[in-house]
Amino acid sequence: MKNFALIGASGYIAPRHMKAIKETGNTLIAALDPYDGIGIMDSHFPQASFFTEFERFDRFVDKWRRDSGNKIDYVSICSPNYLHDSHIRFALRSGADAISEKPLVLNPWNVDQLKTIENETGKKINNILQLRLHPTIIALKEKVARELEQNPNRVYDIDLTYLTSRGKWYFVSWKGNEAKSGGIASNIGVHFFDMLCWIFGDVSENIVHSKTPDANAGFLKLKHANVRWFLSVNFDYIPDAVKNKGLTTYRSITVDNEEIEFSGGFTDLHTKSYEEILKGHGFGLEEAYGSINTVSTIRNLEAIGLKGDYHPFCKKII
């Protein structure tokens, strides 16, 4: 049984980490969050020590190790995106491996620096890239690999569309602050870009067609795919047929005009991620680098408008 600490315990994604820790037969020793309304812990680890101040959490982790002769084996990080880098460093310097939500960090040079700290401490950084464990996505990767064996020069046409509605609170919170979240592409798109590059190869061209506070759209040229992408948190952009069903999220990936159905199968992916990490098969800095570089580039590119091969949803943006 491994000992875990959790940073960012009150966030949206934290319960999936608590569930994964429990379902893999491990225990949560301590949790940290400035917000103290986290009754969800009662369903998972009511005996875990809880802190609202980082300094007291830091002291507990160090003192617990010295007094008990035990140690924190893993620190799970669900804090706001801009804090991941600092909290990963804390984990490694505390003698623990890190398990961080996406995006691992905001910029590729942060990855380079973390590699140095990995080498110094001998500890490992794991990034949650759960789409790589989704059965439908794995099947797609295997299918594409077989087809590329037959035709190594094949290039697929892909449309990625992800709309996940958010209210006014989103833009008041850290998520709406590009300096803290990395912007729309980093916050809700990074794992999709990772998945596409994992299957279709590295990015050779990166174009942004539209960039607003609630939507980003652009084009990626991969080794084996041309990708038109559209990401938004604006409910108005969701197709009427989806709205009429009472849904507030729309997720679509088409490959050569064929829809890839992967709306289900997400509930256990964090537990699967933890199982792989505990076996030493987690996704590390090398796997994270490509998608972090992609979203960092998107953040710094100027939008060129409706020119070239743009996603059809771009016309929805006013």
Rank of each mutant, 00 (worst) to 15 (best):
L133F: 08
D157M: 05
E101H: 11
P108L: 10
S173W: 09
L160A: 08
R154H: 15
K123W: 06
N216E: 15
R228T: 10
N107C: 13
N126W: 12
R166D: 12
W109D: 14
Q113C: 14
Y162S: 07
I199H: 02
N126S: 11
L220E: 01
S173H: 12
I137S: 01
E142V: 03
G95S: 08
I207T: 15
A145R: 11
S173A: 14
A225T: 00
Y156G: 02
M195V: 09
L222T: 03
V111Y: 01
T121D: 07
L104F: 03
V144L: 01
H224E: 01
T116K: 14
P213T: 10
D157P: 01
Q113I: 14
K124I: 11
L220T: 03
A217Q: 05
A217M: 06
W109H: 15
Q130D: 14
G122Y: 03
I184F: 05
G167R: 07
R166H: 12
H209T: 07
I158T: 05
N126T: 08
N151F: 01
A225F: 00
M195Y: 08
I125K: 04
I128E: 09
Q113G: 14
K123C: 13
S186E: 11
W229M: 04
D194N: 15
T116Y: 09
F192V: 01
E205F: 03
K124S: 09
Q150A: 14
L106S: 03
N177G: 06
A145Q: 12
V203G: 04
G176D: 02
T164I: 13
N127T: 15
I188M: 12
V227T: 08
L148Q: 00
W169C: 10
I137M: 11
V172H: 10
S204K: 15
D159M: 09
L114V: 09
I138Q: 06
K180W: 12
G189C: 04
K223M: 09
T136C: 10
Q113N: 14
N177W: 06
L163A: 05
P103G: 03
A98Y: 06
S181Y: 03
V105C: 04
I158E: 02
G183N: 10
D97G: 05
N153I: 11
V144H: 01
V203S: 07
D112I: 12
I128M: 09
E101A: 08
S210C: 13
D202I: 10
S210R: 12
W109R: 11
G201D: 04
T136L: 07
G201V: 06
L160P: 06
N110M: 14
I199F: 05
L114N: 04
R146Y: 02
G95L: 06
G95R: 04
G182T: 05
P108N: 07
P213H: 13
W169L: 14
K180G: 09
D159K: 12
V111F: 02
K141I: 02
K168Q: 12
P213K: 11
T164A: 10
D194C: 09
N151E: 08
I207C: 07
